[in-house]
Amino acid sequence: MKTEVINIIETELVQTFDELFKWFNIDRELLTYAPTNKGWSINKILEHISLTNHYLLMLISKGTRKALEKSKKEDYAERLTDYDLDWQRIRVIGQHNSFVWNRPGHMEPRGKMRVADIRRELESQLQQCRMLLLKMPHGEGALYKIMMSVNNLGKIDMYHYIYFLVQHAKRHITQMEGVEVEYNLGV
């Protein structure tokens, strides 16, 4: 259970962030292009991902500490026998426009963050996620759950939370690809 789930999360985490980092190498004009639907530019989308990650990682870090504390107080091996991450329920988060969600204002990009700062923040967040996974190698992340109101997910554990972060980034990669298509069509 544990190793397979953690390895899948780690692999998708790294692949997704590698994909995100490619967007920092695009032409400045494309990076700042505002789509005709009054949506965000790629620059703003990247800023939004970093802002959302910031707040998610606050919860994940706190939850990881609590999960590790719990793991020291109880024998949890039997609880993990049939554990599997609810992959499909979380993968929906990675599909752009798959559900309606009104994001909190503090996750709205302002467009004032420098591109280099956004990239550094995302690099730091990737390392933070990897360190959190390393701290929970034996299934400890399954021991503590926090409410997730997005798409009515309910209480999810720390592995689900990290996978949610990955899927959120994937959702916005699709959005950036749409902006790029519109830009290239010259709409």
Rank of each mutant, 00 (worst) to 15 (best):
M1I: 00
M1L: 04
V5T: 12
V5A: 09
I8N: 15
E12C: 03
L13D: 11
V14L: 08
Q15P: 01
T16E: 07
T16Y: 12
F17H: 15
F24Q: 03
N25D: 14
R28A: 14
E29P: 00
Y33D: 11
Y33V: 01
A34P: 08
T36V: 08
N37H: 11
S41V: 04
I49A: 06
T52R: 10
T52V: 09
L57M: 13
M58I: 10
L59I: 12
L59Q: 15
K62H: 15
G63M: 06
R65N: 15
R65M: 09
K66M: 12
E69T: 10
K72I: 11
Y76G: 01
E78W: 02
T81Y: 08
D82R: 09
Y83L: 02
Q88H: 14
R89E: 13
I93T: 08
I93P: 04
G94C: 00
Q95A: 10
N97G: 02
V100M: 10
G105H: 08
G105K: 12
H106G: 05
R110Q: 15
G111E: 12
R114D: 14
R120D: 15
R120Y: 09
E123T: 06
Q125E: 10
Q125D: 07
R130A: 02
L133E: 05
L133S: 01
L134W: 10
L134C: 06
K135P: 01
K135C: 04
P137G: 05
P137Y: 11
P137F: 05
G139F: 03
E140A: 02
A142F: 07
A142C: 06
Y144C: 00
Y144E: 13
Y144D: 10
K145V: 02
K145L: 05
M147D: 12
V150Q: 13
V150P: 04
N152K: 14
L153T: 07
L153F: 08
L153I: 06
G154Q: 11
D157L: 03
Y159H: 07
Y159N: 05
H160C: 03
H160F: 04
Y163Q: 07
F164G: 04
F164T: 00
L165Y: 13
L165W: 12
L165P: 03
V166M: 11
A169F: 03
K170A: 03
K170W: 05
T174I: 02
T174G: 03
Q175A: 01
M176C: 01
M176R: 04
G178E: 13
E180F: 00
N184F: 06
L185E: 14
V187E: 13
